[in-house]
Design a protein around this nucleic acid. Sequence first.
DNA 1: AGAGCACCTTAAGAACACCTTAAGGCGGTC
DNA 2: GACCGCCTTAAGGTGTTCTTAAGGTGCTCT
Lengths: 235, 235
Amino acid sequence: MWILLIEDEERLGHSLVGGLSEEGYTVDWAKDGLEGEAMALANSYDILIVDWRLPRQDGKTLIEHLRAAERSMPILMLTALDDIDHRIAGLDAGADDYLPKPFSFEELLARLRALLRRPPLDVLEAVILLGPLEVNTKRRQARFFEQVLALRPKEYELLELLARHPGEALSRTVIAERVWGDPFYVTDNVIDVTIFGLRQKVLEAQTHASRKTVRITTVRGVGYCLEHEPDGFSR
Amino acid sequence: MWILLIEDEERLGHSLVGGLSEEGYTVDWAKDGLEGEAMALANSYDILIVDWRLPRQDGKTLIEHLRAAERSMPILMLTALDDIDHRIAGLDAGADDYLPKPFSFEELLARLRALLRRPPLDVLEAVILLGPLEVNTKRRQARFFEQVLALRPKEYELLELLARHPGEALSRTVIAERVWGDPFYVTDNVIDVTIFGLRQKVLEAQTHASRKTVRITTVRGVGYCLEHEPDGFSR
DNA sequence: AGAGCACCTTAAGAACACCTTAAGGCGGTC
DNA sequence: GACCGCCTTAAGGTGTTCTTAAGGTGCTCT
């Protein structure tokens, strides 16, 4: 396994290279954002560990460049900040996971293992098809019976999450975590209102259809669930 | 599973109680160190979640007191501090694990499962099949002879519990704990009424079947039991 | 056989969860 | 700096679900 570590702090970098090598990884070490980008583009690493704060070019920009260049290797972001906003920004930019500093070496290893086990981004369905519903995750656009749904950002994210787990009840907490990036400080009502808007748009697009093939059901006491009836199939 | 949460932040506490309840845990919430200590000493919780920084008495002191009083339940410590030293101090005081804030809800659940030595979610069967009865735990929906049973939340939980232990008599105490999250303050009558509703719906769905293949029997003096006859088996 | 007990069945009030609407605030854009 | 769209909050309405209570039924043990 070939790792690129992009980290400017000398001591941390040194010990990480040492520790990861002992674990059997091959580690390259770039000490600033531009050097890191060049190395990441030039070689096909299995995984990147990127500090958020870097000289010459910050981690977020670097990740955005890589993703724009269609590099899909998993990226673990190191953030020294206690600030959830930065993590979300990082995940939005295309990082796959984050690790707040300071962390234990065991934690780092666990995250690396998790990311390397995960299928690469381009294996994740780019377009989710559920009967007449089509969610294009790259364009962040949903279509229903050929018409584009005019979804607001939060509505889209919610729909994508539900569509990735069809027929599965998702709890409000999980929804808050995945859509808002914060499992705790999101009140239920926010989710309810967003669901309401989403439902309206889905139903509206479906008014002309003979049968409701996709619907968002409420699972009382738990959360919501996107149900999808394949055309007259039985299982 | 009975959890004591000791946390002073109102909102975080609120959402933790909510989220953990959704996951089927029973949660008591103490808002400062002294109240938490009193509650922990008075009851036998399965696990404690303790904030490091608390009014009136900090988490470390609380943990030391509990361990001095021979209370050995697992303790998960929440630390807002980026400082590894505090984590180590907490572990020295007798905590079993720590979780740095901010954390994701999934992380919290994973730690709880680890401490409670529960099997990870993916080991539990997602769909329980008992002849014509099918319990889909992801969707929280039960089917019988292909028809969906319109179960209320408590009815569903009860059925899932029974279906996980077919042919096994489950006592009212166990049922109260798993379904209501409270082994003590649930009167028998509540359980009886819920069983009644469940039975009715199961029987109704079974009226057309030639033989009753699944039935909920009463075990006098103990509780209830879901019996399932695979193929003309009698006892 | 009779008393006592455990469980069944029904109905109704209270509590709860969710839906729906509207308005305020925040951030981005022109 | 004004506008616009989106997110969030709040509050009232609605339907469902839980719990309680009370009377009935049928075991079980003396």
